[in-house]
Design a protein around this nucleic acid. Structure first.
Lengths: 155, 155
DNA sequence: TAGGTTTTTTAGGAAAACCTAACAAAACAT
DNA sequence: ATGTTTTGTTAGGTTTTCCTAAAAAACCTA
């Protein structure tokens, strides 16, 4: 099993690979907000575990296994981010909070969040549902129905 | 700022306080699944930070500040757990996954999850919404509307 | 190609959180 | 009250993840 941090590194390496083709130590460091020596250390560990192939002064590439893990983490990230954006969490916050949540959730939890996202987005009355939720956040009242007590709802 | 783990200890201490009145090292160890020496170490650190008061061989009590933090963490936990249970994550998984998610989420994210929970629970047509979601999870089809493509939805 | 800049690597160290083994204190029970 | 059991503490060690400072390699550019 890999640690959260190790997963973060793999995900970052996947993202950089897709964006630039070639992955430099410096890129990983900037992406994750750490210093280059920390990256070298982790990349060495990931190499020892056959998650990446690392050649000094050259670059880092994901192995098949490392890529598989990175893809799973990235998918979880995207699902969670989608969910957060549906409930009106601003994009940037949704992204960083997805980073926090993307590790160690039970498969059932991830699946149910995914179901929710699809359920809401595919709903025939999708924009209506969203409008109702937004109104509710703003006013604490359900727009369609009677006389609810009202709640504190400000983000 | 406290680490996730430190927050976990405070939350555990709060829970044990509420259940038993008196908090023993052993109780914390069992609750968190660690060994007694780890607890003693953390409790010493928390004492140094004025989060708890700790007297050797006696027990641990939360300070005002420590209790405040524990309560906030516990509230986040309960909100997240409620959300997960609404989307049909089994109680036990909801509880452990709430533990994973209860740290480091932006206040806006937590608020929006809370809003969602209230929005759904207070909805005039709540049981209907839930029924639709359950059907959707089972079949991949929105029960009320036409001819959707269908998705993989098994938990 | 020599000099300077950037990037990478090494060396050494720190903090958090955990552990085992051994010892100390407290509680309990006969 | 003394011996046993339970609980708590200390000592010493490990792993993970990060850091700074300094050395080495690679890269430009004049």
């Amino acid at each position: 099993m890999l640690s959260r941090k190790a997963e973060d590194y793999l995900e970052a390496i996947l993202n950089i690979t897709e964006e630039k083709g070639h992955v430099r130590i410096k890129d990983i460091a900037i992406t994750l907000g750490v210093r280059p020596p920390s990256v070298v250390e982790m990349v060495n560990r990931l190499d020892k575990k056959d998650m990446v192939e690392y050649r000094k002064y050259d670059g880092v590439t994901l192995t098949k296994e490392g890529r598989a893990i990175a893809v799973v983490v990235k998918e979880r990230h995207d699902i969670i981010k989608s969910f957060l954006e549906i409930i009106n969490v601003p994009e940037k916050i949704a992204d960083t909070d997805a980073c926090t949540m993307e590790h160690e959730l039970h498969a059932i939890t991830t699946t149910q969040i995914k179901n929710l996202v699809i359920f809401v987005k595919d709903a025939p009355e999708y924009p209506q549902w969203l409008k109702h939720f937004e109104d509710f956040c703003a006013t604490g009242e359900h727009p369609c129905a009677g006389k609810e007590p009202g709640h504190k709802t400000n983000a």
